[in-house]
């Protein structure tokens, strides 16, 4: 149990530190880095390389945006296995709908309840 938390911390931290390296040493903006991370997640997952990381580190691999890409890829894979070609279109968003819906819902809600703060 404790070991699982340690692994989540170390792997998740390492994935974030790699992103920070891109921030500090390239001109890439956060938006571009996020796009790169999600595509990287899809590709790694497609080659079967990301699932072992999830098994090893749990949330350390699913919480970073590469995990979002992994969820998209796995969703598509399972949907194709179930319903064929059409699954390529339905699987990705079905698997990630919880997160996307939450972000839309809470984003709208917060926009109504709060105001931006001066810095």
């Amino acid at each position: 149990m404790i070991l699982m938390y340690l692994k989540a911390f170390l792997v998740g931290g390492a994935i974030c530190a790699a992103g920070e390296l891109l921030v500090l040493r390239t001109k890439l903006t956060p938006a571009r880095i996020l796009v790169g991370y999600i595509i990287a997640g899809v590709i790694l997952s497609a080659f079967g390389l990301y699932a072992p990381v999830v098994d090893f580190a749990g949330a350390g691999a699913t919480v970073p945006l590469t995990g979002f890409g992994h969820a998209l890829a796995q969703g598509v894979k399972h949907a194709v296995e179930e319903s064929g070609l059409i699954g390529a279109f339905t699987g990705g968003l079905s698997a990630t709908s919880g997160g996307i819906t939450a972000a839309i819902l809470f984003g709208t809600l917060i926009a109504f309840l709060f105001k931006p703060h001066a810095k």
Binding site: G13, G19, E20, V63
Partner: peptide
């Protein structure tokens, strides 16, 4: 910079593990 990203990122993932 790397250290700060590492420990905060790691902590967020650990929190995710706990909620899970």
């Amino acid at each position: 910079g790397l250290f700060q990203a590492f420990w905060v990122g790691g902590l967020i993932c650990m929190l995710g593990q706990a909620i899970s």
